[in-house]
């Protein structure tokens, strides 16, 4: 009997020693089998040896064996639990491995850039208008003071609809000026972003379709000074407060006086006579603008003696090309994911 008591004591010490060295669930299972295994486990063997004891001794030792069994079971359970908890926090592997990312979709750079432009004008009290892309000759040209056989039309190479001489793909967003003024009396303060079409064979700087944003302000007492102030604020917000801006005379049939607006080259700052962006001039042409031609106002029954206004237009693709230094305009419409997805970060 004392012999058995000694064995119980030894097994307990042995177990305590062994469990200290257990590191994996596998080792834990091996330990469980070693002590509690139904056939050859140490405790099974101890119980078997109870047979050799007298009926009075059996319950005493039996109780002690049971206590050891409970102790071992509890310790095994406890260790197993702490092991899973550890496993949950640290899988026992290299935690510097790459994390999991969500495959987020990317916005198209033109639309994103258009949104930026819209937001600036939105803050300046402009609203956003829209109009048809298949237009009539009247809205695209005549109402904008392009007489039917005027050579100025040559600067706007036009794609026409088959079977209808009066229908064309709008060559600029300007027809929406006319539609807006027909719809609403001054004060008017709108921008019109959208697709426009020209009969151009695609090359790095020309496409048959691109995006433009048009602006129109009409009210009592609107002057060329207002045109300058508005466009300067817009361009400074779009590019930088530090750019220089220059207005120079130009010609558009629907504005008089007309202006072209240049900004100082943000690539070479006018310092490189071989700059491929500004071709050494130090200036980049960015906008066309002018005071709304009195004939255009008359065409929509707004009295040019009472009201005046200014209008402007900017190529969205061209400006985006300049800002991001994209050399080929066609890349916007190839929709190569390696190109598009870069703008996730912009």
């Amino acid at each position: 009997m004392e012999e058995l008591r000694e064995k119980i004591k030894q097994y307990r010490l042995k177990f305590d020693e062994a469990i200290k060295n257990v590191k994996t669930p596998q080792e834990l299972q091996e330990l469980r089998v070693q002590f509690l295994g139904r056939k050859r486990g140490y405790l099974t063997k101890l119980i078997e040896s109870l047979r050799d004891l007298s009926p009075q001794q059996r319950p005493l030792i039996g109780k002690e064996i049971n206590e050891l069994k409970n102790y071992i079971t509890a310790r095994l359970e406890e260790t197993a639990q702490s092991m899973t908890a550890v496993a949950k926090r640290l899988p026992g592997i290299d935690i510097t491995l790459p994390g999991k990312t969500l495959p987020l979709g990317a916005p198209h750079p033109i639309i994103k850039f258009q949104e930026e432009i819209e937001n600036i004008f939105y803050q300046m009290g402009f609203s956003i208008e829209d109009g048809p892309e298949i237009e009539t000759d009247y809205y695209n040209f005549e109402a904008l003071n392009f007489p039917p056989h005027h050579p100025a039309r040559d600067d706007w190479d036009t794609i026409y609809v088959e079977g209808r001489d009066d229908l064309l793909l709008r060559t600029h967003t300007s027809p929406v000026q006319i539609r807006a003024m027909e719809k609403k009396k001054p004060p008017i303060r709108i921008i019109i972003p959208g697709r426009v079409f020209r009969k151009e064979t695609p090359d790095p700087t020309h496409l048959p379709m691109f995006f433009q944003v048009e602006g129109l302000v009409v009210d009592v007492g609107i002057t060329f000074a207002h045109l300058k102030g508005t466009l300067e604020s817009f361009l400074r917000r779009l590019f930088s407060e530090r750019i220089k801006i220059r207005f120079r005379p130009s010609f558009f049939p629907f504005t008089e006086p007309s202006a072209e607006v240049d900004i100082s080259c943000t690539v070479c700052h006018g310092e490189d006579s071989d700059c491929r962006v500004c071709r050494g001039s130090g200036w980049i042409e960015i906008l066309g603008a002018g005071m709304v031609d009195p004939q255009v106002l008359k065409n929509v029954n707004i009295d040019p003696e009472k009201y005046s206004g200014f209008a402007f237009g900017m190529g969205i693709d061209r400006t985006a090309m300049f800002i991001y230094q994209i050399t080929d305009m066609r890349s916007f419409y190839e929709n190569d994911l390696r190109f598009l997805r870069q703008f996730l970060k912009q």
């Binding site: 969500l102 979709g105 990317a106 198209h108 929709n335 598009l340």
Partner: peptide
């Protein structure tokens, strides 16, 4: 969010 990328094609 669903992972669709925005594209623009000619009309």
């Amino acid at each position: 969010h669903y992972g669709f990328n925005e594209v623009l094609n000619f009309s």
